[in-house]
């Protein structure tokens, strides 16, 4: 077992849930609310130095009763260690975990993808938008188990939406603030922008 697991157990007795080893890889389960503190400790402490964030993703089991898991794969390049950190989000409660973006800049797109695919909100992420799906995508979160393989909408509905799409929806509100693009917008879009809205939300 990775020695970091025992140190986490001592240091975060409340947040630490359990640790297990599967195929030589250590997984530490922590309380979702404490993720940022745990990761900050793992990143900053001299004995740990998990300076590299490999991946952020989530797992939903086929048994829909089981909680959804958010997974962080951390690497310590100086100590050549690998640690999997998990937080379980029970079904029914809002799917929110703290963002680790303040610690790892690389978490930016990984968290956006996780939000896009699972609908998990990363609290504290500066720009949590859809990334692989377009911003106006209405069908839900594709990698959830209740999402059918073919998508939620019928083919004709998908086609109708594609044909009805506004040309300016290709640009986010954020981008339309550049140059004169704003002046050329329809009145209602300008008003929405003034209210701080983004396209598709």
């Amino acid at each position: 077992m990775n020695p970091s697991a025992d140190r986490l157990r001592e240091r975060f007795p409340q947040a630490f849930v359990r640790a297990e080893v599967v195929w030589g890889e250590t997984t530490v389960f922590v309380q979702p609310g404490a993720v940022l503190d745990v990761v900050r400790y793992l990143h900053d402490d001299e004995a740990e130095r998990y300076d590299y964030l490999s991946d952020v993703t989530a797992v939903e089991y086929r048994d829909l009763e089981l909680p959804l898991q958010v997974v962080w794969h951390l690497r310590s390049l100086p100590h050549r260690r690998f640690l999997r950190l998990k937080a379980e989000l029970p079904k029914g409660a809002p799917l929110v975990v703290p963002s680790v973006f303040p610690i790892y800049a690389g978490a930016d797109w990984l968290e956006r993808e996780c939000y896009d695919m699972f609908g998990i909100r990363f609290d504290g992420h500066p720009d949590l938008r859809r990334i692989l799906m377009w911003e106006q995508y209405q069908e839900g979160y594709p990698l959830r188990k209740d999402f059918p393989l073919r998508g939620r909408f019928s083919r004709s509905e998908q086609l109708r939406q594609a044909l009805a799409a506004q040309p300016e929806s290709r640009y986010s509100m954020h981008e339309l603030t550049i140059a004169d693009a704003f002046e050329d917008l329809p009145q209602d879009m300008r008003q929405r922008l003034a209210r701080g809205e983004r396209t598709g939300e």
Binding site: E25, Y61, F82
Partner: peptide, 24 residues
């Protein structure tokens, strides 16, 4: 039943595959 994350050095960088199995 189990899970694993395996990374290799692809030409672009660290390429990882993460599998979770429930025995099916």
């Amino acid at each position: 039943i189990g899970e694993t994350y395996v990374a290799v050095e692809s030409p672009k960088g660290e390429k990882g595959y993460y599998f979770v199995s429930d025995g099916t």
